[in-house]
Amino acid sequence: MIKCIAIDDEPLALQVVLEYCSRISFLSLEKVFTDTDEAREYLKQNKVDILFLDIQMPDINGLQFYKSLSVKPIVVFTTAYKDFAVEGFTVDAVDYLLKPFEYDRFLKACYKAKEYLEFLSSQELQLNSIFVKVNYEIMKINLKDIELIEALDDYIKIHIKPSPVLTLMTLKSISDKLPARDFLRVHRSFIVPIHKIEKFSKSKIWISGKEVPIGSSYNNVYEHLLTISKLG
């Protein structure tokens, strides 16, 4: 079952989403919100797959709200203002529903979201290793074996056992190869595998007995890790 929530400052609009969701067998509408602060707290503590989100709200613009989330569900925007459509897709919205929308149009958006979730799931299953150039050879590295990735001038050091490997590439280029749900850049010089984290604070992460600093410009890392640990 796909878990979703809806946020809208208009109770009647939420009632429409409630009624439509009740007719779709693969959706479970867990909760609806008129208050974005309450919704934010819920998202910090609960796993949500799809977010139905109004854009024009009194306290905060829905686009700004979505961008501010540390863990972002798939989003379907719902609004009466078509001028927001282009900006909505710049944050990778799955769909954009212009109010008032009929059930068939809502169902189409839900199927698009479902297909995208299935695609993401299949990508995660397929991606379990990467290839990097080490000296004059191409080496396969299993993602589950990576303990830490560290920048060293023009090289990066990939910490694996029995010994780390050096490859000529940047943190940005290897980050693009890694699944975002499993690896997190925490400093201009470090990427960490989330599943290897033993403990963390606002300024440090511990992995395999090593202390890894959290960079001052990466101030969302602590909140992100806190959210993940609650979702558990």
Rank of each mutant, 00 (worst) to 15 (best):
T79D: 09
P193Q: 12
I214H: 01
I146M: 05
E124D: 14
K99C: 05
T34L: 07
L152N: 13
G215H: 08
D8S: 01
I130M: 04
S121Y: 12
S189P: 06
T167V: 10
P58G: 08
T34W: 01
K161D: 15
I194S: 07
F119N: 12
K161C: 10
L14R: 01
L127S: 08
P164Q: 03
D8Q: 02
Y66F: 15
K67D: 06
L178P: 04
P162W: 12
V212T: 08
F77C: 02
L178E: 02
L69H: 09
S173D: 15
F89A: 12
E30M: 10
L18D: 15
D9L: 10
S175P: 01
F183Y: 01
G62Y: 00
I5P: 01
L107D: 05
G88C: 10
D83H: 12
A80M: 08
E19V: 08
F131G: 01
E147Y: 13
F52S: 05
E38A: 12
K67V: 07
T90I: 08
D35T: 06
L184A: 03
S122M: 11
K99N: 03
E19N: 14
K72D: 00
V48P: 00
L53Y: 06
S28N: 13
L184S: 02
N61V: 12
A109Y: 02
K202N: 13
L168H: 14
V192I: 09
K196F: 08
L184Y: 03
Y103H: 04
K157P: 04
I158S: 07
T78K: 05
K161S: 15
V221D: 02
I141H: 05
L51D: 00
Q126M: 15
H159V: 09
I24P: 04
I174C: 02
D104F: 15
I197C: 09
S122C: 04
L125K: 15
T36V: 15
N61K: 13
E30K: 06
K99F: 08
L231C: 05
T78R: 05
V32C: 12
I174M: 04
E38K: 11
V212W: 10
L29C: 14
F65I: 07
I141K: 02
L69D: 07
K202R: 14
L117T: 04
S121F: 10
D37M: 09
I7V: 15
I205L: 12
S68G: 06
V212N: 06
L168G: 09
L184C: 00
D8R: 02
L166R: 08
V165S: 07
I174W: 00
E211N: 11
F33K: 01
V16A: 08
Y116T: 09
S129L: 06
D95F: 00
T167A: 07
